[in-house]
Amino acid sequence: MATAAPSLPLRPTSSAAPPFRVLPGFNLTLGYTLGYLSLIVLIPLAAVFLKTAELTLAEFWNVVTAPRVVASYKLSFGMSLLAAAINAVFGLMLAWALVRYSFPGKKLIDALVDLPFALPTAVAGISLTALYAKNGWLGQFLEPLGIQVAFKPLGVLVALVFIGLPFVVRTVQPILEDLDTELEEAATSLGAQRWQTFRHVILPIVFPALLTGFALAFARAVGEYGSVIFIAGNIPMVSEITPLMIITKLEQYDYTGATAIATVMLILSFALLLIINGLQAWTAKRTGRDR
């Protein structure tokens, strides 16, 4: 892909004088962008931190380390990690199948992979609950095995796997599509087994994208609300996710409590965003693709 090389490098942009610009509209569009961004995103987000600053450090610590809240972190982070890991394994297989094999209905399946992006989370939530309830299509087979999914922590996992799947498939798929067959041929002609070729030639190329997909799925899962609350059962200390704790505090008009928990989640989200940006840069470097 062509990168956006400046076509008329009349003057380096870092010089003190304002750069010469052929195209109009820079001030207008950048000004509008910054204004709209501040109004819709930055200023309201700042409200979270300012509201939290009303608490003393001890009060803040008490709210965010209350046993019920800590239990929600464990559930949210634990299940999100597990869901992202499951998606990394099966998402890679699905992406591999979509890129390398031909089978009937492939185009339809390829299109439907994006379903969790497009399907409203509440719809996914009630549908998964119906499937995994005791008399549901899947629940009726799991029940005799002693596996309960709906209204248990396992239900949270199922919902998070559903919403995270496209992230892994869609980050890995283009990398697999671009893979040079020559590399594999070289490995084979040098005597490598198929598994060795995969492990030592293909996986190192795909790995940054796989990790990016994992991180994207994890980030999405941690904040997810709609699809989880229907299937989780929302039992305190057992199956309450962290976003639900924020809602619970809000419904009790405990605004500072809700905001304190939101602060913890926001800081984690920002950290994840930085990590994901780094991973995407690594993917681009490793594969020579631009983002």
């Binding site: 961004l37 995103v41 979270v48 997810e224 609300y225 926001l266 920002f270 965003l273 930085l274």
Partner: peptide
């Protein structure tokens, strides 16, 4: 940095997206 800021709403939990307007 600006591109990262534009991405922010993707990484914020929807519940927090609602909360910020309640706070304002």
């Amino acid at each position: 940095f600006l591109i990262t800021l534009i991405d922010l709403p993707f990484s914020v939990s929807p519940v927090i997206a609602g909360l910020i307007y309640v706070l304002v």
